[in-house]
């Protein structure tokens, strides 16, 4: 009997894990199908999509600008410090920084920031609706919760993550250029050099941004829809959404980077 209890607990956790994975899959498929139907027929809830675009995009502008700006400054400062220690490679910093920014740092860091702010917001809003039975009331009203709540956020997030990524990259690049100029006397003409950025880098970076923008509302919506109990359950769902969205960003980054390497090889 004593030996069976831990086994039962392990078994129950394993079943919960399988159940959660299946539920995440259902939310993802439901969201993507709903988005495709929206695209095909024209979005039915334009007002809600616009409201979500404002929440995800406009309300994140300052947050993304400050974060990416400081990261741009720190990266350029540290890189310049390193490159001046052995031989003076300051002339290469701007071009390499632009390549890194477009390929990986810009999309991934913007998405990590959005995973915290947007992911938490989505999970808290949907989680509150879940624990107050509003999700059940939606189902009783003939509404599919994923279609109604997650799809508009998904569409808004895909668009605005791409837009914010471009904005964040521009801010980081500009902040990096200013740091290079004032701290290491790098000529702006030398720093703002896009010769190392290939079209493949732009494709890969923007693909990542769109994929992150898709993943964050799916993961956060899933966490919100699984909220249980009361305010404590909403808190747990919000935490799970931030962790889950951040993990999703890292996994997508790795996956798309690996695919990029397979397609373009060492030339990437």
């Amino acid at each position: 009997m004593i030996a069976r209890r831990p086994l039962t607990a392990i078994g129950r956790r394993a079943l919960d894990g399988v159940d959660a994975a299946l539920e995440l899959g259902r939310v993802a498929v439901g969201t993507i199908v709903g988005a495709l139907i929206s695209y095909w027929r024209g979005p039915r809830r334009r007002g809600e999509i616009a409201r979500q675009m404002y929440f995800i995009g406009n309300r994140s502008l300052l947050f993304v600008a400050v974060t990416l700006g400081f990261i741009g400054m720190v990266m350029v400062y540290q890189t310049c410090l390193l490159t001046t220690q052995v031989v003076d490679g300051r002339g290469q910093v701007g071009a390499q920084f632009a390549r890194l920014l477009v390929l990986d740092v810009g999309p991934s860091l913007t998405a990590m920031m959005l995973a915290t702010r947007v992911g938490a917001g989505i999970a808290a809003e949907i989680g509150s609706m879940k624990v107050t039975e509003q999700i059940d009331a939606l189902r009783m009203s003939g509404v599919t919760p994923v279609d109604y709540l997650v799809v508009p956020r998904f569409l808004a997030s895909v668009i605005m993550t791409v837009v914010l990524t471009m904005f964040g990259m521009a801010v980081a690049w500009g902040a990096g250029g200013l740091t290079g100029y004032y701290s290491f006397q790098i000529n702006p003409r030398t720093f703002f050099d896009l010769s190392m950025v290939a079209p493949a880098h732009v494709w890969l970076g923007m693909t990542k941004a769109a994929a992150y923008g898709a993943a964050i509302p799916i993961v956060a919506g899933f966490c919100g829809l699984r909220a249980k109990g009361s305010s404590e359950g909403v808190g747990a769902a919000t935490t799970a959404a931030v962790i889950g969205s951040s993990f999703a960003v890292l996994i997508i980054d790795f996956t798309i980077s690996a695919i990029g390497l397979i397609i373009w090889g060492a030339g990437l």
Binding site: M129, T132, E133, Q134, D136, A137, L138, M140
Partner: peptide, 11 residues
Amino acid sequence: AMVFQGATLFD
């Protein structure tokens, strides 16, 4: 139809 414990009107 169902009337829930909290009014569950959508905010």
